[in-house]
Design a binder for these strands. Sequence first.
DNA 1: ATATTATTAGAGTAAATACTCTAGGAGCAA
DNA 2: TTGCTCCTAGAGTATTTACTCTAATAATAT
Lengths: 192, 192
Amino acid sequence: MSTREKILDTALTLFNDQGTAAVSTNHIAEAAGISPGNLYYHFRNKEEIIRALFQRLFDTWDNGLPFPHDHQPTLADLKTIIETNYQIIWQYRFAYRELVALLRQDTELRKNFLAVRQRGFNGFHELIHTFSDAGIIHLPDDPKAIHELQEIVWLISEFWLTNLEVNGRSVNKGEMQNGVKLMLRVLQPYLV
Amino acid sequence: MSTREKILDTALTLFNDQGTAAVSTNHIAEAAGISPGNLYYHFRNKEEIIRALFQRLFDTWDNGLPFPHDHQPTLADLKTIIETNYQIIWQYRFAYRELVALLRQDTELRKNFLAVRQRGFNGFHELIHTFSDAGIIHLPDDPKAIHELQEIVWLISEFWLTNLEVNGRSVNKGEMQNGVKLMLRVLQPYLV
DNA sequence: ATATTATTAGAGTAAATACTCTAGGAGCAA
DNA sequence: TTGCTCCTAGAGTATTTACTCTAATAATAT
């Protein structure tokens, strides 16, 4: 593994465990088993490390979600997508916990994040319309209502894990399933 | 205003604007127009300031929500409660943004927060059953389903404003109304 | 082999941070 | 007035933080 990757992996672990504020560049270097000078050879500063981690998250978003291409999507596909989604968020949980602060500190990062997020939101929009066309779900006529439902489901997907952490509940497969259940509960009245 | 209150008000403003990590005790003292020594006369450390602010939040929770006592609650009452709720959260938004980090740093605070929150959750539970009894809402038979619906509405109430901030949307009365709409959208299929 | 470039270690530093200490006023009680 | 407690200012400090600099070593190209 390259030194650069080692730094990023170490930083991710520490950020997830202790939060970005509590983790200094010296900590990262020490935990990665390299010198501070070496760290600063690979990254100009802490902000750049955070940016690079977000970039990895963005790449995962854009490539890592298992949208079915070879068949009409089913409800099982939806569940799989949502679960994968949770796993990604859990992997980069520091980012979600501190989202407001991190995006405020770095407007460039904010721009990129919002763009990636918008792509995801659009993809999700298409997905539910696919379900609608396939007759799996019967959406309300009012497009505003549809948009609101989508916002609700999206909100749950982004904050369910944070919610678990706040509650001090351990985050595991089962709890992620509960998150899936909540999202389906919102849609339940519209399932055919 | 007492020096103690002045410190808390100043800290709250700075925390809301810049996050707790970026605000030092020296910053607070300077912004409050007092000396660092004076600040430390009133609070042992930064953690105590945060605790005191949470305590103010707890008091607001326990006393500030406009539950109707003189009449059967209506849907309008529900809306008012939710709106007040949003205003309180907005007033202490630093706490919600950084909840995971703050509660992890201070287990005593975590304990208190979870207790207050549980009280709120129980109150909310009673409220929707009141609505059910009054025939305003027709809940599903499955108690688990009811619990899930409650969890969803609760999640929206706790994270809607954070969600707005992430999106860079300005937080104002109108956007809070949108949050109310989302919560009602979840319940809409069950309204009589 | 030699020159060049890419990595790395580690000592060092200016600034910031949380917090302490001392001395002095302000109000009040006897 | 004298004493006492409460409150306040502000200088001072040990530690930490982000980051720099230099020199040495590894890798690669010619």
